[in-house]
């Protein structure tokens, strides 16, 4: 195993990250962390539409780029706090499931690791919608961490 991609949703204490870290260490694989910002959350700017237009970019691109930079920094700091500063960080804007599936293909990874998002309802395990879509549409092996 050479390349592992792990989907990260902003919680450094998640089991998914720990599993990915251990597996990458055991296999001496290159670990990439991907975080996807959904379109609707990409806009965090207080800039007005007109001032953005003056820069010559669309409002959507502007907001997405700003959010991307901020989240990349936050992610890198989070990873550093748990001793994962050596992995590559990939920030994408768009629909999470398709961005993750595409990134796995682009990077030609050997394994994609995702969380399952468990809803604690008395022994019942439910998969998140994004998890489910990734398992179905990924072209690479997928590990669902529970």
């Amino acid at each position: 195993m050479k390349k592992i991609l792990v989907a990260y949703e902003g919680m450094v204490q998640s089991k998914t990250l720990k599993v990915a870290k251990d597996m990458a260490k055991d296999a001496k694989a290159e670990l990439t962390v991907i975080r996807v910002i959904p379109f609707e959350q990409a806009g965090t700017s207080s800039q007005t539409e007109d001032s953005i237009k003056a820069l010559g970019v669309s409002a959507e691109t502007y907001k997405a780029t700003r959010a991307k930079a901020a989240i990349k920094k936050e992610t890198e700091e989070g990873l550093e706090s748990i001793g994962m500063e050596n992995c590559k960080v990939l920030i994408k804007v768009g629909e999470p499931a398709s961005e993750i599936v595409n990134a796995a293909d682009e990077q030609n990874v050997d394994l994609l690791i995702i969380g399952s998002r468990r809803l604690a309802k008395e022994g019942e395990v439910q998969l998140g919608a994004i998890t489910e879509r990734i398992i179905r549409y990924a072209n690479k092996p997928v590990l669902v961490v529970k």
């Binding site: 599993v19 394994l111 395990v125 439910q126 998969l127 398992i135 990924a138 072209n139 690479k140 092996p141 997928v142 590990l143 669902v144 961490v145 529970k146």
Partner: peptide, 12 residues
Amino acid sequence: VRYSTKSVLVAR
């Protein structure tokens, strides 16, 4: 994948 309480790897 849905009902196992253990982590599942789907090979392709």
